[in-house]
Structures are given as structure tokens and as C-alpha cells.
Nucleic acid binder design. Structure first.
Length: 570
DNA sequence: GCCTCAACTTAGCAGAATGCGT
DNA sequence: ACGCATTCTGCTAAGTTGAGGC
């Protein structure tokens, strides 16, 4: 997969090799393409910003064990403060959380502390907790000047550590701050919740930069674990985290050339799928009849991935993470088959926890053949058995690769999300509508995608109240309109028109908010919807892009803003 | 064919920043 | 200008993918 044109983002330093086309307003330059997985030729940065060292509690803030004051060693105290800061959270009451915390906390105690502290239930962190609450209040109540000082200091750190130079471009770094120590809280029912996430030191850090760059310096008196010069990868800094033993990275911001180009490429792959998706669908439908079990399973799984936008579903190590599944890892217990339901034939009821332990619940009528296959796959199995016992993501992706270059399971999610947005926009946008009504249409199209991808959120805590407030405003506006109609003034019609428009705007807002109660639009907007669709739509209907994308999003999608014309179709 | 691991994308949430009505 | 509501941003967990070792 190569692209002749390379998009060059704005903050470039020296436009080397800008001999290519810079046609009209597009900012497309022809630049040397790297081959063999080379990601850059020059990379210079200042290294990470470490978490501030532990600041011990003032002596009047006490910890009590079994009702008696006990002075903790600095190390044990630090870990205790992590717990104290979470005291108001429900999960500090969970058995698993407490058990994991206690086990890891003990490791940080002196032998004396270990012998004294033998029961977490006898530990009283409440004074510590109150202290932190007071601190947080004090921070909120700071004077403007003090707040301004902190802001300026943060800005200074950002300017110093938040940027790097990669191949003539000054680029923003995404996460240049090292994750501070604390207690791990996974999502959902995580077996490792409460474990101590340890402090990262310079000795844990691998720095990646180019040989000919000014290397980042470790803090005085420390050393990096390693400095390497691997230009086949995009990260600047990495370290191994102690909870799962996985590697964490510092990488570039989504606004960077390297991320933007990858994003562009992702959508181009999805557009190539568009050209052959009907062929692929015909194929998997045909495969439902295969005499080989593995092929039938593959075909039904692919059908789910395509129709329901399920994730691939890798196997996970039991006991290491929350019990969640995707398509290939579905178990018999996650499906219920209904020969007939609510007047529909062959209904499959899905109920499982997906990524981030978000529940997927759906009732879907399927083709008779799919239904019969599912019955076959579930025959003689226990609820906890795999539905697709002859399939995994590796087999599936190898098959997909044969169907189309660059095709993997996740491309279907991107494709179906983007094509849905495009179709919805084409269908429901009314060119006669005013701007707020058009934006409601846009949000509805976006919502259709979020529902497809099962992007949920907890309803905002203030939801009911905010709906009420809005309704109050609407009522007031209606009254105002009635008043205006009663009055006989020169400016009557002008005024009426204005109020009607304001009322309409409020009503649209109320509809939008209500429909969005449990739906999260952000994820699909950021990761699944080809931004060129939205930008073209804005241009076509005269909607300012700012109404659709905020500043961060406009930076991330700079490539698309540069290249999409009003007639772009996904 | 497994399995493991590195590298990268995708995800929801909490707290900070901003906006808006009074 | 102030206080609350809303939006934005940062954070980091949790996925997917492909390569490489046996």
C-alpha cells in the first residue's frame, strides 16, 4: 500500500524536496517515500517528564491503626495515600481491590510495619482523605494570580518537552508525561484492581531518537535504561509497566504527519473495501453452505463482524484481565436463539461484555442459514464453550488478507461506520433547513454510527436537571413569542421571526440532547468516520467546520480539511 | 501451527477549561 | 463578574494486528 502523494502538515521547518505539486489550495507535496518500514530519518526530543517525587504528609495528618496513631515510613505512607485518595470510590470496598492493594502495600512496608499492620480493616485513612479533599478545595480557591502562575509553568514545560523534531517537522507529542504511580483500577470486573502501579524511574526508560540528534539527558545522577536508534518505529520513549507487564510508549499527537498519514491510509483501505464488499459478502454467504465446519464458522463470524460491527475478539489470558469478548471469542452463553420472537423469525439475542466491559445487547433477525449454523455450532456444548471453536482472529485475518490486500476484521468497522454516515447524511440532510436543524441531522447520522458500534456512555449525572432547565427555557421562549404576537408594533414580524428561530433552536437542542442520553459520539467521530465525509458535507451545506469539529479535532483532521472538496463521497 | 510480544489504534471517564445566563 | 453547566482535554486502559520464535 503506497500513496504517491504525501500530506505535509503545516508546522514544517524546512520544506525540503518540495519540488512536487502544491496544487491550488491543497497542501499536498510530493516527498520521498520511505520503504521497508522506515518511519523517519531524523528524530530529536527532550525525553519524558517524570511524575513529581512523593511529598510526605504534614505531621498533623495522621494514620491510625486499630484506633492508635501510627507514623508510617515514607514509602508505606505514599502507597497509603493512594488508597486514601480513593476512599470515596465504591471500588475501595470491593474484596478484590482491597486484597490486591493490601498485598502490594505490605511489600512497601518496613518489617516493623509489616508486623504491626495485619488487617486492612483496622486501617483508618480518613484523616488523610480529609486532608486531600481540603487540598483540592484550596486549589480551587487559589487566587487568579496563583492559578495563572501554574498555567504559565505548565506552558513552559509543554514548550520544552511537548514537541519533537521528526524529519524537518516540529511535532506535538501526545503524552510526554510519565504516568504517575498509583493504584490500578482496570475497567469492569478486573482481577488486578487495587494493585500498586509503581513509580517509573529514568532507569526504566528506553529512549528512541536518531543518532545524529541531540540526545535527551536523564535527570542529574540517573541513567536511561537504554538509548536506541530504531527508525522502524514511531515511539520516542518506552517503559514496561508492572501490572500486565506490557510496554507503554510516548508517541506523537494525532495532529502529526506520521499519525495523520496513517489515519488517511486507514480510510483509503476502507474505501477499497467498499469496492469489493459485495463480492466478499457473496462469498461468505456461499460459505455458510460449506461442508467444512471451519469455513462455516469463519463465514458466520465474518457476517457478524460485517452486519453488527463486532470487534475481532482475540483470546485473552484468563485471570489476567476482565472477562470480555469480541466476535471470535464469543461463547455459547452469550447467544440465545429464538426460532420466533416478536413476530420475527430466526432471532439471535446477543448479551456479552465487550471492550472496556461495555455491555453489548442486541436482538437480531438473521438468515435462516445463519440460524441453522449457529444451532449446529452450539450443539453439545457447555455455556462456557467457545461458539467458534475452529476459528480465531489469526485465521480470520489471514482469510481476509486473501480477499483484499490490507483487509483485516477492523476494516469492516471503519467501512461500515463511514458508509453509514455518508448514506445517512445523503438521506436526511434537508438543504432547506437552517443551520441548527442541519446540525441535528448531522448528529443523528453520527448517532446511527455510534449505535452501530455500540459506543455507550453513562448518562451524565446532571442529565435530568439539564433537560428540565432546557424545558424551562423553551416554555419561557414560548411565552415570549405569545407576548410578541399580542403586541402591535412596527417591528412585530421581525421580532416574531427572531423569537421563533430562537425557540426552534432550543427545541432542536432538547431533541438532540434527549436522543444522546446514553450515546457517546466522540469515539466514532475520532476513530471511525472518514473526516472527509463531514468536511465535504460542511462545505456543501455551508456549515462552518467549527460546528462539527472542535480545535483538537480540526488539528487531528488537518489532512482532511486540506484535501476534501464539497463533492467528496466516501 | 501454535504462542508470545511489540507496536500501534481505540476507548470511556474525570477533571480542567470554557461558556453562558444572571 | 460570578457561579453553574457544558465542552474539551488528558489520561491510560484495553483492544487489534503482524512478526518472529519454536
Amino acid at each position: 500500500m503506497t500513496f504517491e502523494l504525501v500530506w505535509i502538515p503545516k508546522p514544517y521547518i524546512i520544506p525540503v524536496r518540495s519540488f512536487g505539486l502544491c496544487d491550488r489550495k491543497r497542501v499536498l507535496w510530493e516527498e520521498e517515500r520511505y520503504t521497508d518500514g522506515v518511519k523517519w530519518k531524523f528524530l530529536e526530543h527532550k525525553g519524558p517528564v517524570f511524575a513529581p517525587p512523593y511529598d510526605p504528609l504534614p505531621s498533623n495528618v495522621k494514620f491510625y491503626y486499630d484506633g492508635k496513631h501510627m507514623k508510617l515510613s515514607s514509602t508505606a505512607e505514599e502507597v497509603a495515600t493512594f488508597f486514601a485518595k480513593m476512599l470515596d470510590h465504591e471500588y475501595t470496598t470491593k474484596e478484590v481491590f482491597r486484597k490486591n492493594f493490601y498485598k502490594d502495600w505490605r511489600k512497601e512496608m518496613t518489617s516493623e510495619e509489616k508486623s504491626k499492620i495485619t488487617d486492612l480493616n483496622k486501617c483508618d485513612f480518613s484523616e488523610m482523605s480529609e486532608y486531600f479533599k481540603a487540598q483540592s478545595e484550596a486549589r480551587k480557591a487559589m487566587t487568579k494570580e496563583d492559578k495563572q502562575k501554574i498555567k504559565e509553568e505548565n506552558e513552559r514545560i509543554l514548550q520544552e518537552y511537548g514537541f519533537c523534531i521528526m524529519d524537518n517537522h516540529k511535532e506535538r507529542i501526545a503524552n510526554f508525561r510519565i504516568e504517575p504511580p498509583g493504584l490500578f483500577r482496570g475497567r469492569g470486573d478486573h482481577p488486578k484492581m487495587g494493585m500498586l502501579k509503581r513509580r517509573i524511574r529514568p532507569e526504566d526508560i528506553i529512549v528512541n531518537c536518531s543518532k545524529d540528534s541531540k540526545h535527551p539527558k536523564p535527570p542529574p545522577g540517573t541513567k536511561w535504561k537504554e538509548v536506541r536508534h530504531d527508525n522502524k518505529v514511531t515511539w520516542l520513549v518506552s517503559w514496561t509497566e508492572n501490572i500486565q507487564g506490557s510496554i507503554k510508549y510516548i508517541m506523537l499527537n494525532p495532529s502529526s504527519r506520521i499519525k495523520g498519514e496513517k489515519d488517511w491510509q486507514k480510510y483509503e483501505t476502507a474505501r477499497r473495501l467498499k469496492k469489493c464488499v459485495e463480492r466478499i459478502r457473496a462469498q461468505y454467504r456461499d460459505d455458510w453452505k460449506s461442508k467444512e465446519m471451519r469455513i462455516r464458522q469463519r463465514a458466520v463470524a465474518l457476517y457478524f463482524i460485517d452486519k453488527l460491527a463486532l470487534r475481532a475478539g482475540n483470546e485473552k489470558e484468563e485471570g489476567e484481565t476482565a472477562d470480555t469478548v469480541g466476535c471470535c471469542s464469543l461463547r455459547v452463553e452469550h447467544l440465545t436463539l429464538h426460532q420466533e420472537m416478536d413476530g420475527q423469525e430466526y432471532v439471535v439475542e446477543f448479551d456479552f461484555l465487550g471492550k472496556d466491559s461495555i455491555r453489548y445487547y442486541n436482538k437480531v433477525p438473521v438468515e435462516k442459514r445463519v440460524f441453522k449454523n449457529l444451532q449446529l455450532f452450539m450443539e453439545d456444548k457447555e455455556p462456557e464453550d467457545d461458539l467458534f471453536d475452529r476459528l480465531n482472529t489469526s485465521i480470520l485475518n489471514k482469510h481476509l488478507q486473501e480477499l483484499m490486500d490490507g483487509l483485516t476484521a477492523k476494516v469492516f468497522r471503519t467501512y461500515n461506520a463511514s458508509i453509514t454516515l455518508q448514506q445517512q447524511l445523503n438521506e436526511i440532510t434537508n438543504s432547506e433547513d437552517n443551520v441548527p436543524a442541519k446540525i441535528l441531522s448531522y448528529n443523528r447520522a453520527n448517532r446511527a454510527v455510534a449505535i452501530l458500534c455500540n459506543h455507550q456512555r453513562a448518562p451524565p449525572k446532571t442529565f435530568e436537571k439539564s433537560m428540565q432547565n432546557l424545558q424551562t427555557k423553551i416554555d419561557a421562549k414560548k411565552e415570549q413569542l405569545a407576548d410578541a404576537k399580542r403586541e402591535l408594533k412596527m417591528s412585530k414580524y421581525l421580532l416574531e421571526g427572531e423569537i421563533e428561530e430562537q425557540l426552534m433552536k432550543l427545541e432542536v437542542q432538547a431533541t438532540d440532547r434527549e436522543e444522546n442520553k446514553q450515546i457517546a459520539l466522540g469515539t466514532s467521530k475520532l476513530n471511525y468516520l472518514d473526516p472527509r465525509i463531514s468536511i465535504a458535507w460542511c462545505k456543501k451545506f455551508g456549515i462552518p467546520i467549527e460546528k462539527i469539529y472542535n480545535k483538537t479535532q480540526r488539528e487531528k483532521f488537518a489532512w482532511a480539511i486540506d484535501m476534501a472538496e464539497k463533492d467528496f463521497q466516501f
